[in-house]
Structure formats: C-alpha cells, structure tokens
Nucleic acid binder design. Structure first.
Length: 571
RNA sequence: GCGGCGGUCGUCUAGCCUGGUCCAGGACACUGGCCUCCCAAGCCAGCGAUCGCGGGUUCGAAUCCCGCCCGCCGCACCA
C-alpha cells in the first residue's frame, strides 16, 4: 500500500490525534503533541494494557520521577552504554560509528572500549575514511540520554530517564516490602521516556520524548512460570536470533510451550509475556499473521539483556515496526544497584526443608589477651575472623602471626532456613505512540470513497455518536438529552450539523463504532437506531435498553473477556 | 551527523524551471443561513496562506542565491 502511512498521518493531523509540536516555530524533530482524540485513544490503550498485564495478575503499578541523578544511571549502565562512539575524520569532518569502522577493518575492540583506545586503534591501524580516504581520527561519544542539572550546583548532573524501568529497580526494596514480600512480583510503570535521538524520523515512530508502558516481572529463577498453562498452546511467530544474525527473514511458528522446551525462548515467563503480548496487539486490531517476535543477536541487545525479542508489527506502508521489547534482564539491574548503592536488594525465600551447612568459625578465647597480642590492630582481627573461614593470609597481612593470637578454630553446623538471591526480571516494554500508529494503520480503510477507521471499540477515542435525523421538530432536543445521559458512561459525540450522511461520514473517519440516531419513530415509540460503523447496518432498540446494549457492543462494563484470566492474586 | 529529495490556506495541491499578469488559483474541510425522514446531496454567504524561518541579488522574489529549521528516503540507533 503505497502512501498508506502518509494517509494515516494526514488523518491524524487533520482530525486531531497527533501532530508535530511547536509548529508555529518551525517544529522540533521528535517532539509530538497528542491532540484530543489522541489522548482519548492513548488512555484507552493504556487501560486495555492495564487490564491485560497488571490487573489480571494482581500486579502493582508505580509512578517514579522522570528525572534521576547521575549515580542511578551510572549504576544501571546507561552512562557507559547508552551512547555511541563517534569517530570524526579530521580531514573531511564526516562522522562514523567508531566501533563499526574498526570492525569493518577487521580490528577487534573490546566491548565498551574507552575513547582513547578506539582512537589509538583507528589511527594506529591507519583505518581509512570511507568518504575521503584520510586516516586521522578523533573519537568522541554521543550520549543519547538528555543531560541536565538538578538544582543550582553544576556538579549535580542528572538525566531524563531513557526507560521507566530504573525507577522500579531503585525502589524495589520498598515496593517488595509493601507488597508483603512475595514472588513473583509484577511492577508496572506507565510514563514518559526520553532519548536524544540523533535523527528522529517518520512522524511519531522515533521520538525524543515518548510514552511507555513497562512491566518489570520479578521472579525466582528456579521457579517455573505459573502462567504458562494459560498460553501454552498459543502460537508464537518467531524470527530466531540465529536466523536474524544471518539477515534472514524466515519466521518459525511454535507454541509458547515448545518455544521454551526447545530452548528458543530461554525463560518460560518470557514466553508467557510474548504470548500475552501477541494477544494484546491483536486486540488493538493487528492480525497475528502480521506480527512477529524478532530475536536480537547478542551484540544488538541492550547491555542488560540476556535475551530480547522485539515484538514487531507489519504496518501498511511502513514495514516492520517494533512496538515492544521483551527482555530477559536476569538479575543485572538489582545486582548493579545493590553493588553501587551498598543496599542489599536481594530477597530470601523459605526453603521447603531447612538445610544443614557445615562451616568453620574462629572464636577469640580471651579478648584481653587479643588486645595485648594485636595491639591497635585487634579490631581488624575481629573483622577478619568474622568474615572469613580461612583468615591466616589476612592476619599475616597485618603483620601478625596466627599462632600468637588467642584464636580457637571451631567446626559448627548451621541450620539455613532461607535461600537468598536477586530476583530475575522479565520485562515487556511498550511504546504507546507506536502502538497507536499500528492500531490506526490497521484500522484505516475506505468505503465508497470515504475513510472508515475501523478501530476496535475498546480503543476508539469516541465510543458513541448521537444524531437527530433532522434538526427540527424537537428531534435535536431529544438527541441532545440522550447524548447527555449516555455521556455518563461513554465517550459521546453529539452532532446535528449537515446531513445525516455527512455526520455518519465524520464519525466513521475518527472511528466511532456506533451511532445512535433519533428519528420520528423515537417520538412515537421511544426507540432509536444504533448504526454499526463497519457494516452500516442498523438495529432499533428502546431508549431504556440503549445504555446496556451499547455497553455490550463496546465490550465494556462487564467481566473481562480475556481468555487468559487467572483472577486476582490472593493469599 | 552525512547523502538525495522536499516545505504554498485546516487538509491536499496549482504556480517555481522561463522573476512582474499571484496583496497567490482550485478542491475538500470548516463557519452562518436555507434545505433536509438514514449514509460526504443542493443553494447562498463567509472564514482562511505576507508562499518553513532569516539574509542576499533585483526597480520588483512563492519563483534565483546563501544559511538555518523541519519533513521524507537511505546509513546508524531504538520503544
């Protein structure tokens, strides 16, 4: 479909889903405004996600700051990894990715090699500029996080978060505590992320500020996935890492369970969230046949990831678009923040049976004697023997001899009731703007020369339109009253401008799934028509039935219909 | 950031090459009125662009030149 995406963007702009920000000043790349319809649709996408990813499992949601101090992003690895090394040719001024230049010349550079080393390797190996042939380089790094100052002191560097996840990891201890210390634990966060993209493109596809929905699922790496049974048979279209590495496009179709058993997906819960993700994206109107999970080869993965699948959607006129990343982050983040902050973010679980562990302990037989023998260093001796089973070497390093000290070796048997570990994390992470683009693109269609936006009712920004057939004889008054009553439960649009056909057309174009029309029969028998957007068929219902019938048609208000429902978690 | 192409009413566009006839034309949308018993009907009236921004050349610039901004495509990066 040539130009399909452009038509969607044009519609979005004209009817107020989204448009580029700061247009009156020429616009700024990568910054967009959500208009009235966009906000409504975004809220509905978020609400659908919440119901499928958060509420269904009894997970929790938090809202942490967008701005964080240097230390947090140093510990998370973003300061060191969230940037690209740029090599600038000193003759022609052109810039390239330094590590890519080296790789193309067959020179190996260590992962995350410092700027000086990259520069030395480039210059030392006389790597040529692909443009002008010179071989003198200056290497620098472009940090794709937005940097700022927190407060008036210039040394207090802070960053706008590139992902919301860090706000969950840094607060993990308290979240874990207030959810009464149990695993698995799902923590969601919906908010903005910021990335100083070198080159924002394609309208709302690559933004510098965007909305994300992230779920950090904390689990015991030794436990299975409690949700697997619900999706075991769901078929996942996977472009495996191996195929992707070779540049292949072949997708294999495996059930969620098989994907785990065959080792294609390394974590059962990751497979579960992939299956759930496919259901979610399908409910936004994207057929499964146009979705795939793109396995990312190791060198393309984020620094924290042991395995990542990009959830991609085939968007008409655009091609494959990544709408989500599903990553197995292992214990990377909690471990990193523990080490950097000095605060223990590990958890303990009770063992089914206490375990007996033999170990060696050193005891002081006489403190008085120790002070005499070790002098000022007695405190160091105490510290050493309390933390080491074999302290001889460290004692010697103090300049003391074990045999001069009053130390007694004991073999003891300890009873261990718990196992301590850092929870592992599986993270599904969604870009809301991209989901919106995917949903709008798949909804976009034409009928008799008119645009019909066949959005799933669950995400349609306006749910019900109310029209008088003609605006006279009091039909408009009745319609206005009905619109007002319906707006207590639904997002309602009232329109009495132009002909009835024109109003249907306007409503179709913004995806209103149902239109209620007040006609002359309404005056005599109290019935109205409900006109269906996608079929243009009408049904007639009594005014008293209207709200209930609409709720039914819209799939709202009743029990959730997700097949993977497992009920809220209870204890 | 680089290379290629582009930026004119709300939207889509004509005009640009070959400067003046363009204080920029059209269509759709929009606003008010008339009309209107179910799918963008019709009629009347109206609103709406100093031509992305800034500078230059010229008697005169939407049109030619330069810089910048923004967009699209490719490279790279990513939700």
């Amino acid at each position: 479909m040539e130009g399909a995406y452009e038509r969607v963007v044009e519609l979005a702009k004209r009817r107020g889903f989204f448009w580029q920000a700061y247009e009156i000043y020429g616009g700024v790349g990568g910054l967009y405004v959500m208009g009235p319809l966009g906000v409504s649709m975004k809220n509905k996408i978020v609400e659908l996600w919440r119901s499928m990813f958060v509420r269904k499992h009894g997970f929790v949601e938090v809202d942490a700051p967008s701005l964080g101090p240097y230390r947090v992003f140093k510990a998370s690895g973003h300061v060191d990894n969230f940037m690209d090394p740029v090599a600038e040719c000193l003759r022609c001024g052109r810039k390239f990715r330094a590590d890519h230049l080296l790789a193309e010349s067959g020179v190996r550079a260590g992962e995350g090699a410092p700027v000086e080393e990259l520069e030395r390797l480039l210059n030392g190996n006389r790597v040529r500029c692909p443009e002008c042939g010179a071989s003198e380089w200056r290497v620098s790094r472009f940090l794709t996080m937005f940097e700022t100052r927190i407060g008036p002191y210039s040394e207090d560097v802070g960053f706008l978060r590139p992902e919301t996840a860090q706000g969950i990891f840094t607060e993990f201890r308290r979240i874990y505590e207030v959810t009464r210390e149990r695993l698995p634990l799902g923590v969601a966060q919906i908010g903005r992320g910021f990335r100083n993209e070198i080159s924002p493109r394609q309208a709302m596809i690559r933004l510098r500020e965007f909305n994300m929905m992230e779920l950090e699922f904390f689990m015991d790496p030794e436990a299975g996935c409690p949700y697997m049974d619900e999706v075991a048979g769901d078929v996942l279209p996977i472009l495996t890492e191996e195929v992707a590495e070779r540049g292949g496009e072949d997708v294999i179709e495996v059930s969620a369970r098989d994907a785990v058993e065959r080792g294609i997906v390394r974590n059962a819960c990751l497979a579960y969230f992939m299956a759930l993700s496919a259901r979610f994206v399908e409910s936004l109107g994207v057929p499964r046949s146009h979705q795939r999970f793109h396995g990312k080869p190791a060198r393309e993965r984020a620094h924290y990831s042991a395995q990542t699948f990009d959830h991609e959607v085939d968007v008409p006129g655009l091609g494959w678009l990544e709408v989500a990343g599903l990553a197995y982050r292992t214990d990377y983040d909690l471990r990193s923040h523990s080490e950097a902050s000095g605060k223990d973010l590990s958890v303990s679980v009770r063992l089914p049976e206490p375990e007996l562990v033999r170990r060696t302990r050193w005891r002081v037989s006489s403190m008085e004697e120790l002070r005499r023998a070790a002098g000022d260093r007695w405190k160091d001796v105490m510290r050493i023997i309390s933390s080491s089973e074999d302290p001889a070497r460290e004692i010697a390093a103090l300049g003391l001899r074990m045999e001069d000290l009053p130390l007694v070796r004991e073999e003891i048997v300890e009873k261990v009731n718990v196992r301590r570990f850092y929870p592992h994390v599986v993270e599904p992470s969604y870009g809301i703007e991209r989901l919106m683009v995917a949903s709008l693109s798949w909804a976009y269609g034409m009928r008799e020369g008119r645009v019909i936006l066949s959005l799933p009712p669950r995400v349609a920004p306006v749910q019900v339109a109310v029209f008088p057939l003609v605006s006279r004889d009091g039909l408009d008054d009745v319609a206005r009253r009905i619109a007002s009553e319906l707006s207590r439960s639904f997002d309602v649009m009232y329109d009495d401008d132009g002909s009835i056909g024109r109003r249907y057309a306007r409503a179709d174009e913004i995806g209103v799934p149902f239109a209620v029309t007040v006609d002359y029969e309404t005056l005599s028998d109290g019935t109205v028509t409900i006109r269906h957007r996608d079929t243009w068929e009408q049904e007639r219902v009594g005014e008293g039935e209207l709200a209930r019938r609409l709720a039914e048609l819209l799939g709202v208000g009743g029990p959730a219909r997700s097949p993977a429902r497992s009920g809220p978690r209870s204890r």
